[in-house]
Nucleic acid binder design. Sequence first.
DNA 1: CTTAATAGTTGCATTTCAAGACTAATGATT
DNA 2: AATCATTAGTCTTGAAATGCAACTATTAAG
Lengths: 165, 165
Amino acid sequence: MSRKHDHPCAIAEALNILGDRWTLLIIREAFYGATRFGEFLTNTGISRNLLTERLSQLVEADILERTPFADRGTSHAYALTAKGRALDTVVMALTEWGNSYLYGDGKEPVLARDEASGEIIRRIEPVTSDGQIIARQNIVIEAGPGGDGRTLSRISKAKSHPFAE
Amino acid sequence: MSRKHDHPCAIAEALNILGDRWTLLIIREAFYGATRFGEFLTNTGISRNLLTERLSQLVEADILERTPFADRGTSHAYALTAKGRALDTVVMALTEWGNSYLYGDGKEPVLARDEASGEIIRRIEPVTSDGQIIARQNIVIEAGPGGDGRTLSRISKAKSHPFAE
DNA sequence: CTTAATAGTTGCATTTCAAGACTAATGATT
DNA sequence: AATCATTAGTCTTGAAATGCAACTATTAAG
């Protein structure tokens, strides 16, 4: 990745870590249970030098944790931290979007299913603290405590209900 | 973006379109109401040549739609399609993760709020077709109808409950 | 003490990015 | 009509990231 975004925005800041072709694929593998260098290598198709760099960035960012793990050779286990596991919604949202809009019904390569209901998972929704689904037309965006002047002016010109319709 | 991922996986395929530093920032701006070249340019900080390329990729991918729009000069409006609007969960999930784990409570630059309850939005959840929240430990992944042999072997070695814990 | 397995490094050719100058198209101004 | 202002986009160039393959290092097994 070249230079970093520096404007105050959660998405921009997240993309400083996740915004490339490989990082979320590595994180997908971590969710699926990969722990070793070689597993990430063969399951994603990334090259060795990039994998080395990305893994160390993810460890640095506290998304993966590296622990020694001796069987043969010099080997380590990379596992998701709490911060990394919190990316589950991002992974599920991307999976759902890709399945629905890039493959389509009946052509999905990998599916997530709810064992309790038996349903394939097709909806990811924002919910209130007591579990009520929040309707898109009720969602507003506003400057938060960490916003600066530029944020304020950008947000003030923005649609107040960005996800409605 | 360099070469494309070619293995059957919704995330890999999604990253072929969204997997760079800028694309999701452009999509964020589209949700916030930006429609014009100049708005995307100044609100994201991307360079002109890249913005040109990314916008045309997004139009090509049917995520944005370009329509003529004459006031002064040569101008067009870029607006989200249905496929683009379906990325709302990805945008919300990234926003929520970034706010929680990169900024932290009380330091969020931009917040999403539910007008109905007044709450700041902090939970994004998979739900069943009738709106019940699906518990992480009940989520299993499985090969779908579009999977090939490689998918099958990758998935069969994967943790069956990737989001549990 | 050699071999095999795993993880990682190095060097190099290619591709992409970043930045700014330049061009094109169109409505407004005189 | 001619010029100007505005918006969108192209072109050029140096810098940075990527992809590939060969090489090195570390440790366990035999």
